[in-house]
Nucleic acid binder design. Structure first.
Length: 103
DNA sequence: AAAATGACGGTGT
DNA sequence: TACACCGCCATTT
């Protein structure tokens, strides 16, 4: 499976009301340092209805960007609507971060 | 094949 | 805490 396929698969597994960081997704995909590549995939594939790229945020909880309509503003609204807790303009990671493949 | 780019992350100042 | 730099990865030109 290609790296980007893994990334999409992981992003699709993020539950509603939770978010994951680019670094976290990259790590789960097998590339702990591939956070940058993850963001690149999101930007180039925001049209995939099964890939909630808006649930992927930066390591500090800040929103880096969103290729869909409304940009970052819309992205934040969507997350809030799903139940993600916000602290100012950032996501409250300590309570809304997704524990991928948690065991 | 080589260089440039970008929705990142960590470290240093 | 805010800004600047460097290192990483995959894609695109």
């Amino acid at each position: 499976m290609n790296f980007r396929q893994k990334v999409y698969g992981i992003v699709k597994s993020i539950p509603i009301g939770k978010v994951a960081t680019y670094g976290q997704v990259a790590k789960l995909a097998g590339k702990p340092k591939g956070a940058r590549a993850v963001g690149l995939f999101m930007k180039q594939n925001p049209d995939i209805p099964n890939t909630p790229c808006h649930r992927v945020v930066a390591g500090d909880g800040g929103l880096r960007g969103y290729a869909g309509e409304g940009g970052l503003r819309r992205k934040m609204e969507m997350l809030k609507e799903e139940g993600v807790e916000f602290v100012g303009d950032k996501v409250d990671l300590k309570s809304s971060i997704w524990i991928g493949t948690e065991k």
